[in-house]
Design a protein around this nucleic acid. Structure first.
Lengths: 166, 166
DNA sequence: CCTTACCGTTTGAACGCTCAACCACCTGTT
DNA sequence: AACAGGTGGTTGAGCGTTCAAACGGTAAGG
C-alpha cells in the first residue's frame, strides 16, 4: 500500500463545500417532492423518463439504465408506482422475458402536477444562485466527473487482489 | 400557481450532468467504503468528526449539526457504531438530558485504516479529473449553492483535532 | 414550589435501497 | 436437438433513513 496523499487545506475546503452543497440541495429537493407529491425523487425520475419516451413506455431494463438504477431497485419502485396506479406493466412481445412499464393517465397527471413545483425548486436552489458563467463551468465540471464513472462497468469490481486499498 | 418557467435546453443539459455526476460519484464512494470498511459514508463522517473533536467526543446534538443529520438518524447510527465497539456513549455532566459520543480506540483504528482508501477515491474520481482552475470554480459554485440552504452554518472545526485528515 | 413550554434524545413502524438468490427465457455451440 | 452460459426481471431479507410519538430534563413566570 502506497503512502496516502492527503487533501491539502484548499482541497479539503473544496471537498467539504461540494459535499455539503450537494447534500443540502438534493435533500431539499427530495423533501419538497415528498411533501408535495408523496414520492421520492428517484420515483419522479422514473415518471419523467416514461413521459418522454414514445408511447410513454419503456422496457424495464432500458428504464433502469436511464435512471442509473439497479434492476432490483427499479423493480421495487415500479411495483410501488403500480400500486398507486401511476404505472402499468405489460409483457414484451418480442422477448418473453421482458416487461414494459407504461405511464398511466393518472401517472401523467400526477407528473404534470408535480413538475412545475420541482422545476421551481431546481431554479431557486441552483440556477438562481449561480451566474451564467458559473452554470457553464458547472456543466463542464459535471461532465468531466461523469465521464470516467459512467462506464457501464458499474457492477462488480474485478475479482483481482482484494487488498484493503482501492 | 404561476406559470412555470421551464428549463431551457442548456439548463437541462447542465442539470442532468450535475445530477448524474453527483449520483455516480457519491454512489461510487459509498460503495467503495461499504466494501472496504462495511459502513456507509454517513457513518464514516461521524467517525471523522469525532476524531477531529477535542477528546474525540462530541454531544449528540452537536454531532448531528455537523453531519447535517437529524437527531433520530444520528441516534440510530451511533447505536450501530456502538454495537461495533467503535463509539461509546456517556452522560453529559452539565446537562442531564445530554449524551456524549466518544470514539473508541478501535473506532480510531478503523478510521485510520479506512481513510487512505477513501481519500484516494475522492482524489481519483474528483480532483484528478478536474483542472486546478475547475477545482477553484467548483468551490465557489458549491459555496454559492450551500449559502442560502445552510440554515445554521458550521464554523470551522476547532483546532487541535487529532484525527487522520480526510 | 408548580406549572407550562421547550429542548435533547430515543424509540418503533414504515419505507426505499442493496445484495444475493432465483426463475424464465434467449443465444450460440455442438 | 440438446445443452451451457448469458440476459431480463423478480423476490425476500437486512439495513439505513424518515416520521411521529414518547419521555425525562431544563428554563421561566407566577
Amino acid at each position: 500500500m502506497a503512502e496516502p496523499r492527503w487533501l491539502d487545506a484548499d482541497e479539503q475546503r473544496t471537498w467539504r463545500a461540494f459535499f455539503g452543497a450537494t447534500q443540502l440541495l438534493f435533500d431539499r429537493l427530495d423533501r419538497e417532492l415528498q411533501r408535495d407529491v408523496g414520492i421520492p425523487h428517484a420515483y419522479y425520475e422514473i415518471l419523467v423518463w416514461l413521459s418522454e419516451a414514445p408511447g410513454r413506455s419503456l422496457r424495464m431494463s432500458e428504464l433502469a439504465r436511464r435512471t442509473r438504477s439497479s434492476r432490483s431497485r427499479l423493480s421495487h419502485a415500479v411495483a410501488r408506482l403500480e400500486e398507486r396506479g401511476w404505472v402499468d406493466r405489460r409483457d414484451c412481445v418480442t422477448d418473453k422475458r421482458g416487461q414494459i412499464a407504461e405511464l398511466t393517465d393518472d401517472g401523467f397527471a400526477a407528473l404534470a402536477a408535480a413538475a412545475p413545483g420541482h422545476v421551481a425548486g431546481v431554479r431557486a436552489h441552483l440556477f438562481d444562485v449561480l451566474s451564467p458563467e458559473q452554470v457553464r463551468q458547472l456543466r463542464d465540471i459535471s461532465e468531466a466527473i461523469m465521464g470516467p464513472l459512467d462506464d457501464d462497468a458499474i457492477t462488480a469490481p474485478p475479482p483481482g487482489g482484494d487488498g484493503p486499498t482501492r
